[in-house]
């Protein structure tokens, strides 16, 4: 259960921070330009941060490296990644992943 005060503080700060990012250059000037180098680095942000959510959720499931209980999550992740690579579909990736994990863990 997420404590109420903690939740709203996070949401409020995230909202203010996000609109600041979104509105910053619009508020500054129409002439503000972002260098190509910075643009290039920004394209790496998903690769830099998203695996930090994916890897621990797969390998540290239940709070520790658990190669027996967590193995099905690794297999599902690999299969879902391959499927995503070919289909580029969120629906296929998430739908297949959840269904496969259900089958692995319940059958």
């Amino acid at each position: 259960m997420i404590p109420l005060g903690y939740y709203w503080l996070n949401v409020a700060l995230l909202a203010v921070g996000t609109i600041s990012i979104r509105g910053s250059i619009i508020a500054l000037s129409a002439r503000t330009k972002i260098s190509e180098r910075v643009k290039q680095i920004f394209t790496f942000i998903p690769a830099a941060i998203l695996p930090a959510f994916i890897a621990p959720a797969v390998f540290y499931h239940q709070g520790q490296v658990e190669m027996v209980m967590g193995k099905e999550r690794v297999v599902v992740l690999v299969l879902a990644s391959v499927l995503c690579w070919f289909t580029r579909s969120t629906l296929a990736t998430v739908g297949f992943g959840l269904a496969a994990l259900y089958l692995f863990t319940n059958l």
């Binding site: 998903p46 959510f53 879902a80 990736t93 998430v94």
Partner: peptide, 11 residues
Amino acid sequence: YAIPLSFVALL
């Protein structure tokens, strides 16, 4: 597990 799967789809 939908969270890491969604992030795979985004990544």
